[in-house]
Amino acid sequence: MYQWDFSILWSYRGLLFEGTLVTIALTAAVIVLGLMIGLVAGLAQLSRFAALRWLSWGYIELFRCTPLLVQLLWFYYALPLLIGIEMTAITASILTLALYGGSFYAEVIRGGIQSIDTGQREAGLALGLTSGKVMRRIVLPQAVKQMIPPLMNQSIIQFKNTSLVSVLAVPDLLYQGQAAATETYRPLEVYTVIAIIYFVVLVPLTAIVKKSEKSLRASD
């Protein structure tokens, strides 16, 4: 029978802690960047101009419908060959994850905007507001309320998605864990601990999502 032994991992606590910080920082970066990309792509989906709609549709479907792992490898290894731009592993990771997350955010943002009654837009226009002001002052503030729960959900998924960057040797939690596993020959213990760390970070976040959903409903 297998003898579990977690004690040997104690000496790797510094490494795993560093990895956790990298994972958190990476997640924060791809969420912020992804939201900006998602907002632009989501608004473009609703544009009057067909070219913009097609362009954002192409982007969204390309990133939603291909595996993230392939995207990561492609951005890091294939893009430099094609356009001659070398990227560090971190840059390629942030860019890919932000574009991937942005494609999902875009759909949430488009859906949130479309869920607002057209009468709201009409009322804003009838007052003499321009379309842009109607969007900023009337539609978006209401749509954001609808968007927050799915956006937070998507962000939790993004947190876990960052574990894939270990294939590009970005020193995130999983990568550091792999290093520890190789040295200790204790992969089962290492991966169990890694799962626990992800869990401990994410559970409070999901609780916040639940709470925000509740308070948003209450304010209706």
Binding site: D117, G119, E122, A123, A126, G128, Q142
Partner: peptide, 24 residues
């Protein structure tokens, strides 16, 4: 243009069947 339309609409007030007040 959008600007011209907006300026034109400033001169007319509209009241809707379903009120369309801004809930936020």
């Amino acid at each position: 243009s959008g600007q011209q339309q907006a300026r034109f609409r400033m001169g007319t007030g509209m009241v809707f069947q379903h009120f369309n007040l801004f809930p936020h």
